[in-house]
Design a protein around this nucleic acid. Structure first.
Length: 124
RNA sequence: GCGGAAGGGCGGAUGGCCGCUUGGGGACUAACACCCCGAGAGGAAAGUCCGGACUCCAGGAAGCAGCGGUGCCGGGUAACACCCGGGCGGGGCAACCCGACGGACAGCGCCACAGAAAACAGACCGCCUGACGCGCCCGCUUGCGGACGCAGAGGUAAGGGUGAAACGGUGGGGUAAGAGCCCACCGCCGGGCUGGCAACAGACCGGGCAUGGCAAGCCCCACCGGGAGCAAUGCCAAAUAGGGACCGCGUGCCGGUUUGUCUUCGGGCAAUCGGCGGGGCUGCUUCUGCCCCAGCAGGUCCGGGUUGGCAGCUAGAGCGGCACUGGCAACAGUGUCGCGAGAGGAAUGGUCAUCUCGGGGCGGGCAACCGCCCUAGACAGAAUCCGGCUUAUAGCCUUUCCGCGCGU
């Protein structure tokens, strides 16, 4: 994969498009698949979703905190997914990012981004 | 200046880059792909505790029962358990604060511990009187008198002590000692009078006092309330099914008309109309209405199914500012200006700078203060929508009032 700098550029046309998971069943399937724990989050990935898209879901349980803390953690996870997955994701895979209490909302953003790249590297 | 009381307001700002949801517009047949413009979390969005709007269900109305709620009075409001004003009680020097604040002669129940006694009177320690007699002392006229103590019995509830509460309180008179036994004041009860819309207050007259507390135990009284909730509800599409079992009520009666059909020409059967009857529609009753009577409106259970999209969905008892009018006020009216999220695994952001307010650290200085560095830092995220209440909250700004001290 070409590692374009984490530039705040829009993903160029032609790169992978993301779809958001909405079905509870998809989340349950992903949670039973491979997982990689990182300091800022946990990545779950399940190949073969039967589509030609990269699909992504976010989970922040009540353990992460109150509603404000959960929303903030989810937004940061969404942002790193938006920056990394169109370049480094694998077609036909469902990814689920799970937030962690205190860490996901406070870890420096560039570390969070490199965490996701490392996690994807370990998956393959 | 110090200490205190009651409110009101705010709750970071600006910019760059990259995004999300949505309204409008743009060339195009269209798709959600692109471009432009606009909008996009709170004072509590929270707890889900009250009150409503709205939707569906119970056919409608009234009464009764049951259940739930409210509970000093008046006003405000769509409504409220909210708000405003007033009354009463309690706290505070005061500003001010607090109050489940209707009824204990409708009835039942309860009043722990302590205490003699806890609701109807009673008497533990006491106080007072004191028969018969006993003890002891004194006097002398030597068997009489007197003092004291004990004491059967009686009077009393002042004092002690217990308690949340002890059968009105304080003072005086009175008495053997005492007691509303009598008197004054206070309290209480009753009565009318005056003021007030009222809660209530005031003075007056009468009564020696009868009526302990708990209604936050049941209860009584007055007033209010049908149930479930936007996962309500409606529509569309797909998939599955085009069901089964049991219970209940029941296989009606009379009359008319026409049509069809059968006829042994009497009529029968079916359809149709009217009446009666039966059944169903909220726990009961009444009135009214609707439906059903050949299978079905109704009930219970089993099986199957239980996904997606659209609407509801944000402009309404709207909210806020200012001015005027009415009102002590809450609030109402009129005019004018401004604001006005609409997601749906759930948008309203991510990140980087700069600034400002507070906070922290270091250095200089007796101090006021000055310089440098670090740090947006409290509670917290709309979920149908409004009005309240309650709870959480770093820090900042501000108004009025009270007490004390100082100065004029």
């Amino acid at each position: 994969m070409t590692s374009t700098p984490a530039a705040p550029d829009a993903p160029p046309a032609g790169l992978l498009r993301l779809q958001v998971l909405t079905k509870r069943a998809d989340f349950l399937r992903a949670s039973r698949a491979r997982r990689v724990a990182m300091p800022g989050f946990i990545l779950q990935a399940r190949a073969g979703n039967g589509t030609d898209h990269v699909r992504i879901g976010y989970t922040c349980s009540k353990k992460v905190g109150n509603a404000v803390a959960r929303n903030r953690a989810k937004r940061r996870l969404r942002e790193i997914a938006r920056l990394v997955l169109p370049h480094d994701g694998t077609v036909g895979t469902d990814y689920v990012l799970v937030g962690r209490a205190n860490v996901t909302a406070t870890r420096p953003f560039d570390l969070l981004v490199s965490d996701l790249r490392d996690a994807l590297g370990r998956m393959t």
